[in-house]
Amino acid sequence: MAIYINQDTRVLVQGITGRQGSFHTGQMLAYGTKVIGGVSPGKGGQVVEGIPVFDTAFEAMEKEPADASILFIPAPYAKDAALEALDAGIRILVLITEHIPLHDAVEIMACAESRGATVVGPNTFGLVSSGLCKIGIMPNRYFIPGPVGVVSRSGTLCYEIVGHLTENRIGTTTVVGLGGDRVVGLHFIDVLKQFAKDDDTKAVMLVGEIGGSAEEEAAAFVSSSMRKPVVAYLAGRSAPPGKRMGHAGAIIERGRGTFDSKVKALQKAGVAVAEMPAEIPEMIGDLLSESS
């Protein structure tokens, strides 16, 4: 089992004819993802990586119904494409796009909520249920099946940590990238709730960073309702307040979202907080053998 997506998930690629869209369609197919169609206005009838291209998401859904859609659409046009996908009935929307205007993200989330759809991102690497289905841009080789659920706010740092796990032969159930923006569709708590219910997930790795309050909310959930072991790593210990560290969401504002408050909340909830990425495999390994 896995969360959100599995071997049966049918995936649409919006912006499939672009450089990124076509490249990652190939990568997703190579991973085993069921990519069933693409959308590119004005390019209907073309074929990319063997996948049919449609003019609109509605046409795609009519001819090749999909469960999920991944967007490779430039920021100024991303809202329109996201709303189109949601309106056409997509249940899981993965927004890779960076720099989507804040108010556009707000509208996308409100629409998704009204439709009961799940949005991953924006500014995310996507998500992958290891060995089953990848909807995202992460390098294929690090994501091997295993017992650890991973949820992260950042991309490369997540690869770094999953890379450490893979080297130590610890695989993953599902790896979810929440995205680095201030407004994102999934928070830690949403993903933790899914991992809590997933029988195959035996332990959870949480990769957070400074800014916002998602880690504190996660800590509250862990302390009240999570029975599986959780390990966390947080980036931004050395970050000065008031400076945006690359991600729109990674900023300490008005004394909120500090590294210390997050670590304190997580530790109080019984989460093991790693100081260095390299320590993580051993910490998780120990917790896994304790719990089995």
């Binding site: 950042s154 991309g155 680095g180 210990r237 560290m245």
Partner: peptide, 29 residues
């Protein structure tokens, strides 16, 4: 470094080993 999270983590690690970062520079993917 490449990526906001890993750049932050690099800064943190420099500080952990007693060094002082001159900057944060994420040159993206």
């Amino acid at each position: 470094a490449n990526g906001a999270g890993i750049t932050m983590a690099t800064l943190d690690m420099v500080q952990h080993y007693g060094g002082a970062p001159a900057n944060f520079l994420d040159f993206g993917g």
